[in-house]
Design a protein around this nucleic acid. Structure first.
Lengths: 208, 208
DNA sequence: GTCTATAGCAGGATAGAC
DNA sequence: GTCTATCCTGCTATAGAC
């Protein structure tokens, strides 16, 4: 792996773990096994490195997650809502990355959702928004008819709220439930999100 | 207001906005209008100040939120699930604080949920856990019968996931939905959380 | 209790050898 | 491209006058 890549990988792990300000260039280069100057050589500045982490690593992973989702959906033009929600939950809670990488992804994403940096606007427009839009179009026919379009959007947000939260607030959840966060438990989580959200959106058991 | 209080208030606003590492003692004392040494005089260290912010300001607000919730519930021994969810959403999304203070509270809380500091354990045991427990006891009878206790706990987590997320990811939500985050919209949010979660928990319209 | 002054160190960034 | 050495700024914390 090139120095550039090593820095990129180390940096995103540390940024996710401790936040941008919580990490120094020396932390990164130290852990990556190269000298302090290399960050400035390759990325211009610490800020430039963060930007690159987001626009390269995060965007790449997002595209992978999205294509995994579409693979689960298959080529059905009109998939049942249960399949949509389950595919979404599985894509974001289980695969195709290591659990460490999944955490990195969600932590960085949540941080940007909460306090967007300059990079986020571009990322949002190019990567997130198109995906949200097609999800919404698939789910919208299954929602209650009478409510407004803006309120319908919230149904989608509620699903993501759970996915993000169950990925992030892991420490709190294990404290509250007393469960360990293993593969077995993640299956339970997915099952729960599907059951809860399906009823939440469609009411009843989700069948029309 | 005493210097001590001014520091405490300024500090929590800044910690919430930029995170612990993103804020310097100079930022805090500068904005609070006192000298740099005052933090060390009153709180021993920057860490001690953070600790105090959490154990005093956060705990205080949490107790207020919880007692507000109980007031909304009234003295009914067995309130209907809709009332529980609505009271919860209203307590955490609307009142009794300014919108700025509500954001402070949720940002600090989310940060601790994600990456707990030394203070959090104590806070969790004393403030959060008892509240979760009584909420669970009230909601549990309305949940599907067949599932395990640990999975039932997740129903409660799903409600909090939404409350936290709709408070925090405001920037993203306004971007996605195109809505402004005013009082009117918050009413919509509460209405949505109640509708979605009630169906999610009980299925159907929530009536037994 | 509040201030100034300063110690002592860690931060990001750069220059220049190799 | 990679390294060391170094600059300078800004950090936390403390000493000591008032």
């Amino acid at each position: 792996m090139s120095t550039r890549e090593k820095i990129l990988n180390t940096a995103e792990a540390l940024f996710a773990e401790k936040g941008y300000e919580g990490v120094s260039v020396r932390d990164i280069t130290g852990k990556a096994g190269c000298n302090v100057a290399s960050v400035n050589y390759h990325f211009g500045s610490k800020k430039g490195l963060y930007r690159e982490v987001f626009l390269v690593k995060m965007a790449e992973r997002s595209r992978k997650l999205q294509s995994l989702f579409w693979k689960k959906i298959g080529d059905s033009a009109n998939p049942p809502p249960e399949q949509i929600i389950r595919s979404l939950s599985e894509a974001f809670l289980r695969s195709p990355f290591s659990e460490k990488e999944r955490m990195i992804h969600h932590k960085l994403m949540a941080r940007e959702a909460e306090r967007p940096s300059e990079v986020f606007d571009e990322f949002h427009k190019k990567v997130l928004m198109p995906f949200f839009r097609s999800l919404f179009l698939m789910l919208e026919p299954h929602m209650p008819r009478r409510i407004k379009r803006e309120q319908k959007m919230l149904y989608l947000m509620s699903i993501f709220a759970q996915i993000i939260h169950f990925n992030l607030a892991r420490t709190m959840i294990t404290k509250v439930t007393g469960q360990t966060y293993d593969e077995r438990y993640i299956d339970d989580l997915i099952e729960h999100i599907v059951r809860f959200s399906l009823k939440g959106i469609c009411g009843g058991d989700g069948r029309k």
